[in-house]
Amino acid sequence: MLTRRNLFKQSAFSAITMLALESCYSSPEIPPAPDGLGHDFEFLTLADRGILSKLAPVILAEGLPTSEEQKALVIKEIIVGWDIAVNGLPLLTQAEIRKLFSVLDSNFILSLTPRLLTGVPAAWDDSKEIDEFLNNWRFSDPKSLITGNELRVGYMGMVEITMACWYANPRSWDFCGYTGPPVL
């Protein structure tokens, strides 16, 4: 399981070094959560929603609408879809996704380990940096001695749920040439 504890326990740095380093680095700010379209969020926290609002455009890239207004709206819908999808999963799977977000949300991790272990971006505003982080996780070694398969599995989870939430949405269907279910 990817937790801060494991990462640090198994990393080459001692906790004291970490604490010393942390005080020298400024923590990147978690982006603000976009409004929730009236959805009553059960799983996603404000911080999760903020991070998803930055991840989704990089994951979906040209698949999203080009108009900024439309794009902002569908990102809100994707985040609502995320919450609904995760709420339907078995509780053990939900706990795993919570751990994934705890790594993404954590300022401590963000400030210390970007290039070292998890590659979580140091700033959520820079889409190039987010793309790099996603690719680091995507191409991470599934048999890593330090993180096991967790980065690769975390990547697949984040990307799949985001893809599912967007390509199930009728607003994506023009883009992927789908005319929708037949009318009976």
Binding site: V58, I59, L60, A61, E62, G63, D131, L134, R138, M156, V159, E160, T162, M163, A164, W166, Y167, A168, S172, W173, F175, C176, G177, Y178
Partner: peptide
């Protein structure tokens, strides 16, 4: 169907979107 295709392909970003655009 698009959701099955999108979640089966590995990867994200431009390359993934290009395949989705050619999905038909």
């Amino acid at each position: 169907q698009p959701m099955l295709v999108a979640t089966t392909l590995d990867g994200h970003g431009k390359t993934h979107a290009e395949i989705m655009k050619q999905r038909p």
